[in-house]
């Protein structure tokens, strides 16, 4: 078993949607069901974090810009860590990710163990 980082990206639309609690709830359910499914297979290593859309990019020579979105069209919305036998299995497990239903994507990366 190896660990994999799953990074969720989607186009940042710049708008802050105001969601009702019911809408929030219905958005949460697919995520919770998917993470619950990974955890039930004992393949979830870390529930990771959701990331706010606001951000700063710090560059050499004291250059600080607002948000990473000028250069990357797709903003990182969150990440989790899973375990799987191979990167192919990790990719297979990612197919259930709810980000895909709203036009986003999942980047699957193998974690290199530090010995």
């Amino acid at each position: 078993m190896e660990d994999f980082l799953l990074v969720f990206r989607r186009d940042h639309d710049g708008e802050q949607l105001q969601l009702s609690p019911e809408q929030m709830q219905s958005m949460m359910k697919p995520w919770q069901d998917w993470m619950g499914s990974l955890a039930a297979q004992n393949k979830l290593v870390d529930s990771g974090n959701r990331l706010a859309s606001e951000g700063r990019v710090v560059k050499p020579n004291n250059v600080v810009t607002n948000g990473p979105y000028v250069e990357t069209k797709e903003a990182i919305g969150g990440y989790i860590m899973i375990r799987a036998n191979s990167i192919d299995e990790a990719a297979e497990l990612s197919k259930g990710c709810p980000i895909l239903a709203i036009g986003g994507n999942v980047e699957v990366r193998t974690v290199v163990p530090m010995d």
Binding site: Q32, D33, G36, A39, A40
Partner: peptide, 25 residues
Amino acid sequence: ILQLYNRLLQLEYSPIAALNRTYAL
């Protein structure tokens, strides 16, 4: 119950919780 099991499993895996979660599902 399903959502509680989803969170419980994220906190700590156990086969029995995985089975109960699937029943709730």
